[in-house]
Simulated scan of single mutants.
Amino acid sequence: MSINLALETASAKPAGKRPYFLDREVERVLAITMATVQELAVARQRVDTLERLLEAKGVLTRDEIDAFRPDADQAAERGLWMQEYLARVLRIVQQEGEAIAADARGDVRSEDVAVEITAGA
């Protein structure tokens, strides 16, 4: 997956305004934290499963896993994954930046049109 595709995927969002139930800045930090927590929990479970299966089948020991050092291609692949991961985690910051840029350009938002139509009815 390319970084551009990752950014497009990470920026997918539902239509309408984002509801804020707490202070806007608190919610931003909370959204980033929870995205990270979710990613970490899934990764931890998968790593644990792999390590247990590999060790149970006598393929690798956990010490061998700990001693692994990636080659240049593997390191590059990990680097791309990290960029995609950060794009997902920081999605809220990107979306808020896009909203500010849209406002600066004078783009009409669908929720503003809905309010205008409702007010005129």
Rank of each mutant, 00 (worst) to 15 (best):
residue 21 F to M: 13
residue 21 F to D: 09
residue 21 F to C: 07
residue 21 F to S: 10
residue 21 F to R: 14
residue 22 L to D: 08
residue 22 L to S: 07
residue 22 L to A: 12
residue 22 L to V: 02
residue 22 L to E: 12
residue 23 D to V: 01
residue 23 D to H: 04
residue 24 R to W: 10
residue 24 R to T: 07
residue 24 R to N: 06
residue 24 R to M: 05
residue 25 E to P: 01
residue 25 E to D: 14
residue 25 E to I: 03
residue 25 E to F: 04
residue 25 E to Y: 05
residue 26 V to Q: 04
residue 26 V to S: 06
residue 26 V to P: 00
residue 26 V to N: 03
residue 27 E to P: 00
residue 27 E to Q: 02
residue 27 E to L: 01
residue 27 E to N: 00
residue 27 E to R: 00
residue 27 E to D: 02
residue 28 R to E: 03
residue 28 R to I: 13
residue 28 R to Q: 07
residue 28 R to N: 07
residue 28 R to M: 09
residue 29 V to D: 08
residue 29 V to Y: 15
residue 29 V to G: 05
residue 30 L to G: 00
residue 30 L to R: 05
residue 30 L to E: 04
residue 31 A to F: 03
residue 31 A to Q: 03
residue 31 A to P: 01
residue 31 A to E: 03
residue 31 A to L: 08
residue 31 A to S: 07
residue 32 I to E: 00
residue 32 I to R: 01
residue 32 I to P: 00
residue 33 T to W: 03
residue 33 T to K: 02
residue 33 T to F: 13
residue 33 T to C: 09
residue 33 T to D: 08
residue 34 M to K: 15
residue 34 M to N: 06
residue 34 M to P: 00
residue 34 M to L: 14
residue 35 A to H: 02
residue 35 A to E: 03
residue 36 T to S: 13
residue 36 T to D: 06
residue 36 T to M: 10
residue 36 T to W: 06
residue 37 V to N: 10
residue 37 V to L: 14
residue 37 V to E: 10
residue 38 Q to E: 15
residue 38 Q to D: 14
residue 38 Q to Y: 08
residue 38 Q to T: 12
residue 38 Q to G: 08
residue 39 E to C: 09
residue 39 E to S: 15
residue 39 E to M: 13
residue 39 E to P: 01
residue 39 E to L: 15
residue 40 L to R: 14
residue 40 L to T: 10
residue 40 L to K: 14
residue 40 L to C: 13
residue 40 L to D: 13
residue 41 A to P: 02
residue 41 A to G: 10
residue 41 A to H: 09
residue 41 A to T: 12
residue 42 V to E: 11
residue 42 V to N: 10
residue 42 V to H: 12
residue 42 V to M: 09
residue 42 V to K: 09
residue 42 V to R: 13
residue 42 V to F: 05
residue 42 V to A: 06
residue 43 A to S: 11
residue 43 A to G: 08
residue 43 A to Y: 07
residue 43 A to H: 10
residue 44 R to W: 13
residue 44 R to M: 09
residue 44 R to P: 01
residue 45 Q to R: 08
residue 45 Q to P: 01
residue 45 Q to K: 06
residue 45 Q to F: 15
residue 45 Q to D: 14
residue 46 R to I: 11
residue 46 R to Y: 10
residue 46 R to D: 08
residue 46 R to L: 15
residue 46 R to E: 15
residue 46 R to C: 12
residue 46 R to K: 12
residue 47 V to C: 10
residue 47 V to H: 09
residue 47 V to Q: 12
residue 47 V to E: 09
residue 47 V to L: 10
residue 48 D to K: 13
residue 48 D to Q: 14
residue 48 D to Y: 08
residue 48 D to T: 09
residue 49 T to I: 12
residue 49 T to P: 01
residue 50 L to F: 11
residue 50 L to C: 06
residue 50 L to M: 15
residue 50 L to R: 06
residue 50 L to D: 08
residue 50 L to T: 04
residue 50 L to N: 06
residue 50 L to K: 03
residue 50 L to I: 15
residue 51 E to P: 01
residue 51 E to Y: 07
residue 51 E to K: 07
residue 52 R to S: 04
residue 52 R to G: 02
residue 52 R to V: 03
residue 52 R to I: 05
residue 52 R to A: 05
residue 52 R to E: 07
residue 52 R to M: 06
residue 52 R to T: 11
residue 53 L to G: 05
residue 53 L to H: 11
residue 53 L to Q: 14
residue 53 L to W: 13
residue 53 L to R: 14
residue 53 L to N: 12
residue 53 L to S: 10
residue 54 L to S: 04
residue 54 L to P: 00
residue 55 E to Q: 11
residue 55 E to V: 02
residue 55 E to W: 02
